[in-house]
Design a binder for these strands. Sequence first.
DNA 1: CGCATCAGCTTGTACCAACAAGTTGAGCAA
DNA 2: TTGCTCAACTTGTTGGTACAAGCTGATGCG
Lengths: 261, 261
Amino acid sequence: MMGSMSKHPKYQQVADALRREIDNGTYGPGARLPSEAELATRFEASRNTVRSGLNLLVSQGLITSSQGLGYEVRKHEVFELNASRFENLQFPQNGDAYSTDVMNAGRRPHQTFRVELTTTTEYIAQRLEVPAGSRAVLRFCHRFVDDVPWSTQATYYPDWLLQEAPRLAEPGDIAEGTTRYLAGLGVEQVGYADEIATRMPTPEEARLLEIGPGVPALLWTRTGYTAERPVRCTVTTFRGDLNRMNYEIGDLSARNENEAQ
Amino acid sequence: MMGSMSKHPKYQQVADALRREIDNGTYGPGARLPSEAELATRFEASRNTVRSGLNLLVSQGLITSSQGLGYEVRKHEVFELNASRFENLQFPQNGDAYSTDVMNAGRRPHQTFRVELTTTTEYIAQRLEVPAGSRAVLRFCHRFVDDVPWSTQATYYPDWLLQEAPRLAEPGDIAEGTTRYLAGLGVEQVGYADEIATRMPTPEEARLLEIGPGVPALLWTRTGYTAERPVRCTVTTFRGDLNRMNYEIGDLSARNENEAQ
DNA sequence: CGCATCAGCTTGTACCAACAAGTTGAGCAA
DNA sequence: TTGCTCAACTTGTTGGTACAAGCTGATGCG
């Protein structure tokens, strides 16, 4: 402790020391860290300084804190999302694929659903190739796994499509699935463009998904096209710490059959 | 100011108020916020309380701070990454595709490169289907755009492959590209598995990519397979605020030809 | 035994003070 | 003019204090 000789600020030394001890297993996933008072003694720092260091680790997603309980090392439990799977399955607007996926993993799925008439943001309008602010139907889905918020999914359909497919604007599920419904009306999707982005969640997103500090959001935008033009744009928001997106490209069929055994 | 009646803590009210003003354009991208002292007066709070609020916005990636200068609203400049493009191009290990991409965008590319013999981490070993800790060649690339760090790319080749392809372990570029080199030796890639994840950067990543607080990292793992087994695993790390990953699935060829015009 | 209370731990919020360190522009000296 | 110094701003760091609020287990009453 004497000759640290470091020109780093003290709160950073605290954070670095704790990070090392978390990395090397001194404090494993789920373990409780010493209290602020104990750390203050150990590092010969004030409680405020120790708090600054801990705060750094919190905002880096390494630990969490709860009043009355203390700090504990975050444990990561990742849920794999296979984006390629939906290629043939069609997109699970009514949550069929989602529900079976979750139940197959031994979890309990739950979702809320609503439909509303809204106007397009710049972002959505650009992808649907309609004027910004034009009318659109939003079908919104809020999904939970074991009562833990998992994702929000917002699918926008452009105004012109509603003439051909009025049931899109009606509240409630479309039993056969929107993709099949649209295909039955001659609107057939031939391809997708996916965009994946990440950023810190907005307060609204943090509330809906119960995202704590230091955890980024993973945003998945899928725009579906017929041969002529885009027909839908889906923005799905995930908790970044609980999800990973997977794509398979090329011919891995032989491999996948192996893994299935 | 009088009847706020809010049970939210004061530092959160400060953060919320500033966030609203950033959202509604009072402070646009790049704008400078009032100083801590001014905000303290306006919100009738101490400097520390104002700092707590500002800190919240910093760790949410909404603003940045610099000593002596003040706080300013972060401006987002996104660089699109088209993952599907590499499907046919082969993976640009020597940076050819990267350099042309960047120069086409009117930017100046720059990269450093090194090769080293290392051992596999659990994560890499699992994807290469080799024992954890086994020997592997790491070809590491650090990329810049206009001298701003852009990405780090680490490609691992399993031990067994070095018997057939010794040049992988030699320092320096492989002129024709590693994929072509391997194909010439009969090691032909037939598919990829991509994984995309996000999390807050480690200090090491934050240093290499100059990632400030409140900005997540975007991790792209691509495992390349021959018909029999994995032959390489590439982990690319991006700044989450500067990059977006794009995939195209299905038949969008007609659309892409249109856009090219 | 069952259960409510409370002491004693934890973190959260809010304030004050002082000084360090980075930036900028005014103003002076060569 | 040019170039340097420095005052006056900015945020960064570190210490202190006090009280609020959440959690847990021990205590003791009924």
